[in-house]
């Protein structure tokens, strides 16, 4: 008998929404299975005791990396380049279907 899936279809739908992805019902079912299996596998992390361990945000020990305010801008993009890869522009701006506010 198959165990209850770790990720139910409802959760997959919610995740898709949070990730701004459109999924078909078939995809929801299929992904749910595979993602659940993946989540089951990573449970092995609980074999390691980490109560007193501090999270590693990075593998480097760097700190305080900055740039100086007012430094020369060598990466400024010219107008043709800014819009070269965009589909719809108007008055030097990018166009989106109207966003409804309230």
């Amino acid at each position: 008998m198959k165990n209850k899936k770790t990720l139910a279809n409802e959760e997959i739908k919610h995740l898709a929404k949070l990730s701004a992805l459109d999924l078909t019902d078939e995809e929801i079912e299929k992904y749910g299975d595979q993602l659940s299996e993946t989540l089951d596998y990573v449970e092995n992390l609980n074999e390691l005791k980490t109560a007193t361990v501090k999270e590693a945000h990075s593998v480097t020990e760097s700190k305080d990396v900055f740039f100086e305010d007012g430094a020369e801008n060598k990466r400024s993009l010219k107008e043709e380049i800014v819009f070269r890869n965009s589909k719809k522009t108007k008055n030097s701006q990018f166009v989106v279907d109207r966003i409804l506010k309230s």
């Binding site: 740039f67 305010d69 007012g70 801008n73 990466r75 400024s76 993009l77 107008e79 030097s92 990018f94």
Partner: peptide, 26 residues
């Protein structure tokens, strides 16, 4: 009112400038 933006060297003095003229990949 810094000269540069927070994470790149583009000018932070944007008020009244032509749209999308103060941009870079960042």
């Amino acid at each position: 009112s810094t000269k540069s933006k927070m994470f790149c060297q583009c000018s932070a003095d944007f008020f009244g400038k032509r749209p999308n003229s103060l941009v870079c990949p960042v």
